[in-house]
Nucleic acid binder design. Sequence first.
DNA 1: ATTATTTATGAAAACGTTTTCATATAATTA
DNA 2: TAATTATATGAAAACGTTTTCATAAATAAT
Lengths: 342, 342
Amino acid sequence: MANEKKVQQNTILDIAEALKLSPATISRALNNHPHVKEKTKSDVLKMAAQLGYRRNNMASGLRSNKTYTVGLIVPRISMFFHAEVITTIQNGLHKHGYNLIICQSNDSVTMEKELTEILFSSRVDALIAACTLFTTDFSHFDKLLENGTPVYFYDRVPLHDLGATIIKGDDFRGGYMATSHLIETGCRKIAHISGPLTSNLYQNRSSGFIKAMEQHQIPVNEDWIFHQELTQNNAREAMRKLFEGDIVPDGIFTDNDSSAIAALEYAKEIGLNVPVDLKIVGYSNDPRTSIINPSITTVEQFPADFGKKIVEVLIDSLKNPNEITKTAPIIIPIQLIRRMST
Amino acid sequence: MANEKKVQQNTILDIAEALKLSPATISRALNNHPHVKEKTKSDVLKMAAQLGYRRNNMASGLRSNKTYTVGLIVPRISMFFHAEVITTIQNGLHKHGYNLIICQSNDSVTMEKELTEILFSSRVDALIAACTLFTTDFSHFDKLLENGTPVYFYDRVPLHDLGATIIKGDDFRGGYMATSHLIETGCRKIAHISGPLTSNLYQNRSSGFIKAMEQHQIPVNEDWIFHQELTQNNAREAMRKLFEGDIVPDGIFTDNDSSAIAALEYAKEIGLNVPVDLKIVGYSNDPRTSIINPSITTVEQFPADFGKKIVEVLIDSLKNPNEITKTAPIIIPIQLIRRMST
DNA sequence: ATTATTTATGAAAACGTTTTCATATAATTA
DNA sequence: TAATTATATGAAAACGTTTTCATAAATAAT
C-alpha cells in the first residue's frame, strides 16, 4: 500500500476555488459562523462532502490554539476500574466533540513524566491523570497548569494542593465500612493487607480500617498491617506470615481484589473454610470477585460515576475557560457489596 | 486555575533570540540534523532546557506532514484480549518515539466510521483497527489508504483484500483444537455457541468446529450451532434451549469465555456435574476462566504476540515508507489450555 | 595563491487553517 | 432620498515549525 501514488488531499482552498469564494468564507461556513448566508453554508457543506474534504486538525489547532483533545494518563488500562472510567470518559467527551488520547504509565514515574511532556507537546486542551502509586513529586504537571491547561486528578491524587481538580473515591469510608462489616460478622482478629503509603488510597483505607477497629475497641496489631505493592505474590507472602504464628486472624481486609483472591486461594490451600474460619473483604468489585467460589465481599467504587463527574467538570471548565473553577475535592461515594466470603 | 494568568510558552524563536541564531538552526539542532556544529547543538539543547521549551506538535506536524502518532480503534478496551494487545502496542511504539491514540467503537459501526474520520483529521501516521463484529463495509478506511496512510487490521479483519495489512489469530485451528479436545475426552454430543457470521472470527472457529466433527465422523446437528452476539444472556438462552430437549449435549464449545462462564453457571444451576456430565471449552483465556470452579479449558490467543507483531510490521513500514509492504495475512498461533472443565 | 569542496548558518516560503480588519452590498431608518 | 445599520464577504496576517535555496566560512585540493 505504501508505494501507491498518494492522493492529494483537498483543502479549504479547493472548496473556495470550486465555489468562487474566499477561504475565509469557507472556514466560517464550516464552523457555522453566524455571519454567513444559509445558502452559502449549504453550498459549502455540499461541496465539502463532494470533494471528501476533512479538516486538518493540526492546521486548525495551530491557528486557533484549541485541539479539542484531552489527554489521559492511567497506570494500566487493563485494570477493571480504570477501563470502566476510561470508557465513560471517552463516550462522554465524544458527545461534546472532544477526543481522548489514552496513555499508560505502567505505574512508572519516569513514564508518567514523559507522557505528560508529550501530551503537553500535543497541546491537549485538558489533562486527566490517575497517578502512579509512587508519584510523590507532581512538578511535571506544572507546565500544563502554568499554561492554563486544566488538570484533573482522579483515584490516585496528589496529597497537597496543586491548583488542579481532584476526583476521588471515599477511601476512608470504604476502609471503615469493610472493617466494620468484618467486625459485625464476628471477626475480632483482623489483618489488613494494604498498599504503599505513598498513595492517598492506602493512607485513607488504612485510616478507615484503624478507625473502625478503635471504635469497636479492638486492639490493632501493627504486625498485621501490611503496606506493600498489592500483587498476588505479596498477598500470599503476607498470608504465609499471618498463618505461621500461634494466633491467626479470623478476618482479612485487603485493599484490592487481586489480593483478596490470592488470600482466598491461599486460605483454601491450607484447608481453611471461608467464611467459617476466615472472612475476607476486598476492594473494587472486580468481576472476578463475583465468580470465584466463595464469592468475595468487596467495596464498589462506581467507576462510571468517576467518569461522568470528570466529564462534567471538565466540559464545564472548557466551555467557560475564564470562570474561577477552583473546587474542593469531589468525593465519589462507595458501597459495600456483601457476598459469600463474609 | 483557569483564571490564572497564562504563561506565554517559549518557541523556537525565543531560543534563537537568546542565542543570536536563526530559527532554522535551532530547528535543525533540535532535530539532530547532521549539518549543525556540535557546540551549537549543545548550546541549543541547554537553552531549550533552560527556557522549558517543548516542541509544538501541531506546528511541526503541519509543516513536516508527520505526526509520530498512530491511531487505534478497538471495540472495547475493557476486553482482556484487547487490553493486552493495546498495552503491548503502546509500549512498543513508545520505544520508537510514536504515540498512540486509543479509541473505542463500543462495537458500533457508526462510531467506528466517525472515529476513522477523526483519526484521519488528526493525520495519524498509521491506523490500527480491530473492527466491529458488524462491519461488513470497510469503505471508511479508503480515505486513509488513498492518502498513503498504512492501515493494520487485527483480530476482527475484513474478509476481502483492501490493501491493508492483516494480523489475525488462527481461529480455524482454535475451533478445530477445542472441538477435537472435547471429542478426545469422550464427548459425542457437542453444541457450539458462536458469534455473528458477519465476523471472520466466528466463521473460522465454526469451520474448525465442523472440520473436527466431520473428521471424527460425528454428525453435526445444525440446531446445536448458535450464531448470535456472545453475551452472557444469549449463552444462557442457548443453554436453556439445549437442555429442554430429550437429547442433551455432553460437550459445549463457546466462542468466547464470557459465554463459557455463563454456560458453566447455568449447568451448575440445573444440577449438572462439570466435567462429568458436561464438558465446556471457551475461547481467549480470560483471567476469569482460571479462577472459576471448575476452571475452564480455553484457547489462548497470545495477545502480546499480536501486539509485538503489529508494532514490528508497522514500524518497519513507517521507517521505509517507499518499500512494497504488501504482505499476506499474518497468523498468530493459538494454544489449547486444558483445565478442570474437560 | 587560487579554486573547489565541505560545513555551518540564515532568509524566506510553506504547511492549512482561523481571525482581524476592511469593505461591499442589502436592509432599515430618518 | 440620504444616512445609518446590519449582513455577507474578501485580503492578508498569523499560528510555530520545517525545509529549500542561497551564501558565508572553513577546509581541502590544485
